[in-house]
Design a protein around this nucleic acid. Sequence first.
DNA 1: CTGAAAGCGCTTACAG
DNA 2: CTGAAAGCGCTTACAG
Lengths: 341, 341
Amino acid sequence: MRVAVTLKDIALRAGVSQATVSIALGSSGRISGATRERILSIASELGYRRNLLVHGMQTGRTKSIGLLMSFCGRFEAGLFEGISGALDAAECVPFVLRPSRDVPVLGQIHALLDRRVDGILMRPTGEARWERHLHEALDRHVPVVSIDVETQADAPQVDFVGTDDAAGAAIAAETLFGAGHRRLACISTGDFPTPMFIRRKAFEAAVEKEKNATCHAVHQPWEDGIDGYAAANEVFSQSPRPTAVFVTMDALARGVYRAAAERRLRIPEDVSVIGFADELIAGLLQPPLTTLKQRPVDIGRIGAERLLARIDEADAHGERRRVLIQPELVERASLGQPPKL
Amino acid sequence: MRVAVTLKDIALRAGVSQATVSIALGSSGRISGATRERILSIASELGYRRNLLVHGMQTGRTKSIGLLMSFCGRFEAGLFEGISGALDAAECVPFVLRPSRDVPVLGQIHALLDRRVDGILMRPTGEARWERHLHEALDRHVPVVSIDVETQADAPQVDFVGTDDAAGAAIAAETLFGAGHRRLACISTGDFPTPMFIRRKAFEAAVEKEKNATCHAVHQPWEDGIDGYAAANEVFSQSPRPTAVFVTMDALARGVYRAAAERRLRIPEDVSVIGFADELIAGLLQPPLTTLKQRPVDIGRIGAERLLARIDEADAHGERRRVLIQPELVERASLGQPPKL
DNA sequence: CTGAAAGCGCTTACAG
DNA sequence: CTGAAAGCGCTTACAG
């Protein structure tokens, strides 16, 4: 067994004090001339590794953060990729906790705080129970940054980085208008304050502003594996039938395609479909789904960078800053002109 | 700002020594009668939270582990769900680091060790560079458990929990034999020691043992977004044409379906296809893909439990233990009898 | 530039 | 059952 090498060991070998070694090894402070070189070489020879537990306790910086999020799709994978990249550059490491029904959020936040994380990055679920526990962190001057879903009034000091969902929904609407559609439908799920909710509101607002345009909106409560089938059936049984459907997340398109197939409605000849998110399924559907592509890697990276900046500022209570990332239209084959009457 | 409450604060208020408070709060040792009650109530009143940095330094247990894995699909999400569940129960929290070309593995292991993780759970990539750095952990008596991909001879003390890939491949072969197929093909990717490699070898071995059965094997080097299209074209241009194709991972089926469609081969009437993993895509393909379902949540859970057990045993150098989880056939629509001549 | 000392917030023998 | 003391491995003023 190898026993950990300590400052004392190095000091002994180098014939200097522990304090000198500490200073020489830290990038900080007064330089120690040639002594430093000697200390450095002894340290590396001995395979010294600083105990970050103690270091963190002394300095108040553990170079660790907490990350509260779950992993279910390509979007989350992108977020994590971006986050990891930014943290790597700062030599910071994330504790990752997965929100779940069985585990109280407060307990998770305490688990992080007890380990003295420097900050917390979170992707809130839609549920409100998150917000009220954030003060446990903020009160201790541990900054919190939220990605993808914005926290609400309860926690106005929480920075936000996410997709500009409203802009994306407006692009979807404009695209449909541009193709000649006026009789639209919107199939949605997810309540305030989820991105899906914001997309729906923005889409409806865009329709309101467009002359002669109407929107038949169907909202379904969120559930696992939701696919929009029931809502699509309602939409397709309207008369006159909408010529285009906006779904607030790609997964809903699956049910739309199925309902359309059952009614022998061709996509896009009889009905156009446009999604949001560019999840894996968008490219797999036949015809491939036109959708709004998010930039999860950027969101993750910028979110982590903002958190690191907050940590350096030592300012957990500043006003909220928001960064909105523009989504981009990915044109595939599910969108065409409205059918001729 | 709230300043952290320490043992001293509680001791002062309770009129006892710091040591007494420490003992009363720890679940360990001698009970302190009524004093304990008083201390406990003062602690909770003050909102005391133990500093796990210091606690970890004192006891040598940080209740943190390192988790080295990346997130790209449903399988990984399942692993993480299982891991999280097991760790939650032990009040343990994982640092999660994502392997990537840009970041040296050694650096990641050091980042974990410097933070004094109690153990490391890893899902190795196929690359060998992992293994030789594991000793950094093992030498310090930090146990390592590997999931999904078994580490090799370099690190024989590393426990393994993963799918019984060989058994799964044998099931695939038996299923095809049972349906009457004898002219088989195997499309594979991934080298030793990935699960895909093991599946391929086991499949070929099963074919060898079956009378009159042949297998046309095509191996493609692993790359991102690989879909098996080129390999499928090679398979389909054989004469006589194989009547069934085993792909060592579901994603490869995508190219097989495409190649089949281009040649107007119907699935399963003209050619049967069987996959491995039950990834999301398996259910989305048309016809839905018959495949071998893995049990990622169990693998994750058992892997984490094994690691926790190793930590408790304080035995990082015991012999390797292996847990193989049986995969299960998911019958969907891509498998039928061979075409009549 | 360097050393001696104090301190971070705990736990753990060791006495009483 | 409880207290006084030492110690974990560092960092940080404070003297020299």
